[in-house]
Design a protein around this nucleic acid. Structure first.
Lengths: 236, 236
DNA sequence: ATTATCTATAGATCTATAGATAATGC
DNA sequence: ATTATCTATAGATCTATAGATAATGC
């Protein structure tokens, strides 16, 4: 801006960018690519600092693109937040839905709480744990959002189908349980799942290093069994 | 500022303030009072929008004092946040500590998981539910903070003593359980408690109005029993 | 011709600081 | 004399918008 020397250095930046990114991509590809990169960075940043702790500018910087592009693609921050939430929601919902349906078929008219919970919980824990860094970020993102008013409202829309499917099976597995108890039981289950996905490190410090926040396999070994035991204990 | 008419109206504001607030208070009283009011408003606002969703100015406006006073009393936002956390922490910790000690005495050498959990959980739920609006706000404040890195780190410092006390009793009640399982069990317990304290309204909508987020008595009737059933199920 | 990306800039908001005013404290 | 409260203001940061530039698309 100040000297023409600076101005002259610009082409090289653009050349780099062209070499690194373009290589004969269609506009549709470019758009998809930029959009995904923005979502990846937003997911990561929101997982660390929540909706209000991240600015559009933060996201742009993290991606390495110009500030105004984030707005160009997502209009405003709430929109971006919802887009992050929605992007992976279908995958987890349909995976769990399939697992529950598969379990129903296999269990016939004798579904158990533990069986249903294994299908519901293990499937999800595996997805996050073995799905790569992005999925791990999404887990923390969702967990952090889950106990905020804004986040919970979005979860209603995105996750209710699979949750109601689970609850349907639980009701058949526990026909004499009061209905409220089943809902409260689910409330305890999802609390444990969400707090696990959050990986705050608190359990690591509390246990003196015996347990690790990011050891989802360890949680997977216990959570369905634990929760099934819980449901068993609240029959009236 | 612009006309002297505006300037002249000032005394009446001050007169109102003087009438409403002062009435012969010492400076120490004034300081304590302002400080408490700021903490009350910050607690409420942080519970709704988290650390990053609230500005010092928001807090000042909510209290109805001048913007700079919040900084005058608490220096910066992180400090204010920690002060909110700390203000009520001792009350809940010492109440639960007493309840656990009382339970230990009464149970002698045969403590049960459910007994310990009743002491730990019911005591706290009662405090929030019957302690008035401020305590209910604190509950939501702590819940929201609990699955963030910043919040979890503060909870380590404030709540570890009573948590470790509980875990000590659980270990004695479950001498053959692997130690990790007890820590993971506690992780599930605190998840359920925190998510309950958050009162996001999700369970209300999910259950079609059958359950209510702010119905802590309903949770109290189930949570200790549920969790005790869970511990029982993860003996190996 | 359309659209992905960038430049420049205005306005709003937030934090931080220096210093004034008006109480309480001895 | 000390301190609670307020005034005024500077600088940083964030959002929002208009419009330029440089690609891809027919």
């Amino acid at each position: 801006m100040s000297t023409h020397a600076v101005t002259k250095s610009k082409p090289s930046v653009k050349a780099r960018r062209a070499k690194a990114k373009k290589q004969r991509r269609t506009k549709a590809e470019q758009r998809a690519d930029s959009s995904e990169q923005i979502l990846d960075s937003a997911e990561y940043l929101f997982s660390k600092r929540g909706l209000y702790g991240v600015t559009m500018r933060d996201v742009a910087k993290h991606v390495g693109i110009h500030e105004t592009l984030v707005k160009y693609y997502f209009q405003n921050k709430e929109n971006l937040f919802e887009a992050v939430f929605a992007r992976r929601a279908n995958v987890t919902v349909s995976r769990r839905m399939l697992a529950l349906e598969e379990y129903e078929r296999q269990a016939g008219d004798k579904p158990t709480v533990e069986g249903a919970l294994h299908a519901f919980l293990d499937t999800d824990l595996d997805l996050y744990y073995y799905g790569g860094e992005g999925w791990m970020n999404y887990a923390a993102f969702g967990a952090r959002a889950s106990n905020t008013p804004e986040g919970a409202a979005i979860m209603d829309i995105l996750f209710d189908p699979v949750v109601l499917k689970l609850i349907g099976i639980l009701k058949r597995a526990l026909p004499t349980h009061p209905e409220e108890n089943i809902f409260w039981g689910y409330h305890f289950v999802t609390s444990a799942l969400m707090n696990t996905l959050g990986r705050t490190g608190r359990i690591d410090r509390l246990s003196g290093g015996l347990c690790h926040s990011d050891d989802f396999p360890a949680v997977k070994k216990l959570i369905a069994r634990f929760m099934a035991g819980g449901f068993k204990a609240i029959g009236r």
